[in-house]
Design a protein around this nucleic acid. Structure first.
Lengths: 337, 337
DNA sequence: CGAATTAATGAAAACGTTTTCAAAATGTCA
DNA sequence: TGACATTTTGAAAACGTTTTCATTAATTCG
């Protein structure tokens, strides 16, 4: 690859001038500008991003870091895609990291990304109280949280109203006459699941029902297999639920399998409501009622926030809370027993 | 972040010595080694990858480039995850790029990745005859093709036997008595689709059936929506097919929707076989018969090939062809009319 | 017309590493 | 003991940029 030096030689100017042409061409004579531009053309010059990044202090590295639990979770693929599209428009590239919800890996990648001098890091924090990320922010690295919050920390954040999402799901089931409603959720260390569960409980309480701990199951959010087991336990309860709310797309999948295994019919024997409107949700039979969250759009907003912060490191932090929607399909129906 | 210089000062040695401790500690006195190690500990030293990459010629940048059509296609998420897992073990990070099957974007990202001095690039080429990628290989950049081949080029490649996959799908349908079998495929510019279609045609010919062009529909492989339209056209044919073979997971989804829309029952009214065994394939009703390809494993193998090539740039290129499998479920059944 | 701006350019330092080369200290051997 | 090999260390160059500072040429102004 051609370097500044070669271009300079080819155009008969100093590298300083060539550099100026790249950055602030206002300060260079139109004629030399011409000449340099041509030389760049002829040599097919591409600036070396590594050298650029080494030289410039910050905010010009053209690289973003992104740490997600698992790219195989389609919800995160959507977020990633949203981020990547915005980054592409800004001529940025994205380093993708999978943490597997493992704080060790999260820390590892955080270090890598810092040592890569990325301009900023976007992530759903594994622990809403985790101090590694908080320290990172203190150190001045631009950080945007997406999907999950970081508690008690001033940081740009894009989430949906998870509590409302949980509330909507349960309220819908209640309105159909269900009274024993189970939830497949996950550890409260994740702000999203904690909030969805809170919505679930609030809806029950608001309708004068009490919380039955037996109907609340916490699973590994990455594993539909684990969800399947938990769902099986629920279905085998002596007083089994008439409806189950699964709080993310993988758990929904596990739930669906468990229902199939037990030979139950949706929605006649049991109603099912999921979280995340995945492409397959309307291809399954019966099509699934779900709480929808706009993953792609969340990714876009997060990236936009990031670029705003890079442009102005001291601007006030903002919290964007997007609205969940409920998509009524056929996996939920009236309960009369 | 602490630098070599600071560590050197703190340990009372030169930066050369510290650098040696990092790389080839054999050549440094055990006592100084101790001292330097401690200094690194105390300052929490992390080498600056950017500086490392700028300095070292090649093969040490600890960065891999990855260009895929779209991370939202779950098949590619699996590949990406396989690659990332291997990279993680080697202390490598991955830059992820989405090309949208757009040669312009592919070219753009290829340039970016070169200018980032990545150690190698893994991708399914958009055009099996495309010259951009071929030139890249000529230039000495380590390249591994995954999922799709680059025709007439000596390059490390990991694919499945797509022709066999197509053949298996159709043979299965034939064995069930189907005679009018349609295929939802895509442009032959993609080696994978061209081969799957070839397998489809071969199977028909081997059973003395002739190819009916009306039953072959080429769609945009990224769009289940487009596949849905094409599937609708097929279903509305005066002599409609009794079975449809969809050659990737997104097209399968579109096909499923079209069947639903037309009020047809799978497999009684029509048999459906898909490509790619996605997590939802066994959660849908009825569970889907599919040709399975091991995406995650393909990603791993591709990454392994890449690291072998980085270690030894002149080793002979290898082509890995993995075996597709058929997963019999309930979306295909005997046809007797 | 001479002084003072302004415009256009380049030399050199810096970013944080690795690597080459040389120097100093130590050990070995006849 | 002296020549030579080995071990241990550091100074300085290099990677490809950006940026500071200085220099020269051209322009403006009183």
């Amino acid at each position: 690859m051609a370097t500044l030096k070669e271009v300079a030689k080819h155009a008969g100017v100093s590298i300083t001038t060539v550099s100026r042409v790249m950055n602030d061409s206002s300060k260079v004579n139109p004629e030399t500008l011409q000449r340099v531009r041509r030389a760049m053309q002829e040599l097919g010059y591409q600036p070396n991003r590594v050298a650029q990044r080494l030289r410039t202090t910050s905010g010009q590295s053209k690289l973003l870091g992104l740490i997600i639990p698992d790219i195989q979770n389609q919800f995160y693929s959507s977020i990633v895609r949203g981020i990547e599209d915005v980054a592409y428009d800004k001529n940025y590239a994205v380093i993708l990291c999978n943490s597997d919800e493992d704080p060790g890996k999260e820390k590892f990648y955080l270090d890598v990304l810092q040592s890569e001098s990325v301009d900023g890091i976007i992530l759903p924090p594994i622990h809403q109280h985790g101090k590694v990320v908080k320290e990172l922010i203190k150190s001045g690295m631009p950080v945007v949280c997406v999907d999950r919050k970081l508690s008690r920390e001033r940081v740009d954040t894009v989430v949906i109203n998870n509590e409302k999402g949980g509330y909507m799901a349960v309220e819908h089931l209640l309105s159909l006459g269900h009274r024993r409603i189970a939830i497949l959720t996950s550890s409260p260390q994740f702000s999203s699941f904690e909030e969805r569960q809170r919505g679930y409980e609030q809806a029950l309480r608001d309708h004068g029902l009490e919380i039955d701990e037996k109907l609340i199951r916490e699973g590994d959010p990455r594993s539909s297999e684990h969800a399947r087991q938990l769902a099986n336990e629920l279905l085998e309860l002596e007083r089994a639920p008439s409806a189950i709310f699964a709080t993310n797309n993988l758990m929904t999948l596990g739930l669906l399998e468990a229902v199939n295994e037990n030979g139950l019919q949706i929605p006649d024997d049991i109603s099912v409501i999921g979280f995340d409107d995945m492409p397959w949700a309307r291809a399954v039979t019966p099509p699934l009622t779900v709480i929808r969250q706009p993953g792609y759009e969340m990714g876009r907003r997060a990236a936009e926030l990031m670029f705003q912060r890079i442009a102005d490191p001291r601007r006030e932090q903002v919290q964007i809370m997007m609205e969940p929607g409920i998509v009524l399909r056929e996996s939920t129906s009236r309960w009369v027993k």
